[in-house]
Design a protein around this nucleic acid. Sequence first.
DNA 1: CTACTTGCAAATCATTTGCAGATGA
DNA 2: TCATCTGCAAATGATTTGCAAGTAG
Lengths: 157, 157
Amino acid sequence: MSKSFSLGSVQVKLPPVERFGQFLQSRGKRITRQRQRIVETIFSHHDHFDAEELIEHLQELIAQRKVSRPTVYRTLGELVESGMLRKMVLGGRSVYEHEYGYPSHDHLYCQRCNKLIEFHSAELERIRDAVAGEHDFQVSSHRMFVTGLCAQCRRKR
Amino acid sequence: MSKSFSLGSVQVKLPPVERFGQFLQSRGKRITRQRQRIVETIFSHHDHFDAEELIEHLQELIAQRKVSRPTVYRTLGELVESGMLRKMVLGGRSVYEHEYGYPSHDHLYCQRCNKLIEFHSAELERIRDAVAGEHDFQVSSHRMFVTGLCAQCRRKR
DNA sequence: CTACTTGCAAATCATTTGCAGATGA
DNA sequence: TCATCTGCAAATGATTTGCAAGTAG
């Protein structure tokens, strides 16, 4: 029996915890309460976050020893491996964002207020593929990061 | 007397050490032998490098205590501030490349052999500006990073 | 002069690891 | 059962910092 399911002709995506479970099984890893709790917390709201912020959200569970700091780091790594989370480095710390269940996008980064604005451009991908083609390069993914000033910060100064 | 000079109508760029000297002066910082030696070493050949590799190149000077590890790090930071060096994070370590005296470009990164292939695309910048415009965002710079397999690695497997 | 710099040794600090006990399949 | 996990405490390792001595302007 397949783990994916559908309603009529509408493909329904698996909930993150399920999807991660598949990944774990495919690697001979185990589905543990800790990993489930961490994944649930991460995908309970769409946001960019770093390990420290995630750990804050898990405060209570950590206090009750239901989850520990090393396990959070270990699971973050597995989520990136699974392709469900995307990792980037901003000002020395690792920042994560949902890759699973969220459309691919790039960022405008305001260097004054540190805001991240998401955008998507099919044209950008077209050019990416054209350039890659010229180099006989096989694209797996890309990252476009534009630094500057957001609308608000431009006005303020 | 200006620090820039020209031959006929041809604008000649300042050598890196000079350019960095200007930057230092504009900040009330001092032009020291250490900073000069580090800048000379960095700009003596075009290449991507991390702090450790740079330190290897400075081996001799470090052994003679003409330059120290902390000063290398401090100077790298100043070079990035000055805009002469560009910093990126690759697999956990900071990698630097020349921004001064070298045309702007982006990268194709081979995830198998870790090769960095440079490319430039005016079209990419056009799209970048278009997207930024839609968000009333003022672009200061951008970084496009394409991950995948280079031509050689594609063939090998 | 004297404020900025440097080298040294020690400190940081996010992230990782060794291990013994716990647990999912 | 038993290989995989987890929490803990300790280790890492690249980068940073405090400080007394050195030096550019």
